[in-house]
Write a protein that binds this DNA or RNA. Structure first.
Length: 274
DNA sequence: CAGATTTGACCCTT
DNA sequence: AAGGGTCAAATCTG
């Protein structure tokens, strides 16, 4: 199984759409076409991020989300502190384990923690560890869900420019389930309303089951997650250069409901994007 | 000892 | 003015 091929293919598709946008940037191009290309690009970006999330390494140790007792000095001098402009969140996911919330293949450094009004649990703030060295501006917020304390809601802000994503090579594929088990790491992919769906056409991807099989990949983010978690689907031939990305408007705009798929993992995750 | 985390304070946005 | 995001000194950890 070569999930990384899918990632590469999606990235290439993204590049093709950028080229399309460049062509559409001519004076006579309609705004609708430009908007269309932009939407497809965002949908692809969502698919890529979901696939990467599925590849996140699982670890047994929990992140120290709870505050420890600290004896910070009470008489530190007050200094003038600037604050950058508020940034906008661009992706949201939910995971069912604290380790999955923190270990997504990137190196994060916690820089704050706040009690949020109306929430039972605090919100933790992380930024890329390479912010100072490589100028990576990616940040994320992790907060335990009020409704389901086993869920962790993660909001991402900014893209990684550090290029330091790493992954683990793991042998066994996962199984898709719809219930939970405390003995296993669990990952819940939720397609939010920001970038809810993807739609693309490729003759090079084959799937294991009829409902999600290629040649047409078309559906919501949850279907993407389910497809990626399939045990036996493979890439074949890889005529990536011949990919013809097109937008299925009906799919794009009818998939706005929030759907979720539970993907249950063992102690090790099955994907390798290296 | 270097890097990561904690946590109260600061300040921006609404 | 309140709430939330960020800063940075103190503290922890390997």
């Amino acid at each position: 199984m070569e999930i990384n091929l899918l990632i590469n293919a999606l990235n290439q598709g993204n590049e093709q759409i950028r080229e399309l946008e460049a062509q559409l940037d001519q004076p006579n191009s309609s705004e609708a076409c430009k908007s269309l290309a932009s939407q497809v690009q965002e949908a692809l970006a969502t698919a890529i991020s979901m696939a990467k999330l599925l590849n996140q390494p699982a670890k047994t140790s929990e992140s120290p989300l709870l505050a420890s007792e600290s004896t910070r000095s009470e008489n530190s001098e007050k200094v003038f502190k600037k604050r950058k402009k508020m940034t906008r969140l661009n992706k949201q996911v939910r995971v069912c384990s604290p380790s999955s919330a923190v270990n997504d293949g990137y190196s994060w450094r916690k820089y704050g923690q706040k009690v949020i009004l109306g929430s039972k649990f605090h919100r933790a703030y992380y930024r890329c560890s390479h912010r100072d060295t490589l100028g990576c501006q990616a940040t994320k917020q992790v907060q335990r869900s009020d409704n389901n304390s086993s869920l962790y809601e993660i909001s991402f802000c900014g893209d990684h420019t550090c290029g330091t994503h790493h992954s683990l090579r793991i042998p066994a594929p996962p199984s898709v389930v719809h219930n939970t088990s405390p003995e296993t790491e669990r990952l819940m992919i939720v397609s939010g309303d920001l970038q809810p769906s993807f739609s693309l056409t490729s003759p090079s991807i084959c799937g294991p089951s009829n409902d999600i099989s290629a040649p047409n990949l078309c559906g919501s983010g949850s279907e993407m997650a389910e497809m990626l978690s399939g045990a036996s689907w493979t890439m074949s031939e890889s005529p990536i250069e011949n990919w013809d990305f097109k937008v299925d408007f009906d799919t794009l705009w009818s998939s706005t409901t929030i759907e979720s798929t539970m993907v249950e993992f063992g102690t090790e995750l099955p994907f390798d994007f290296s």
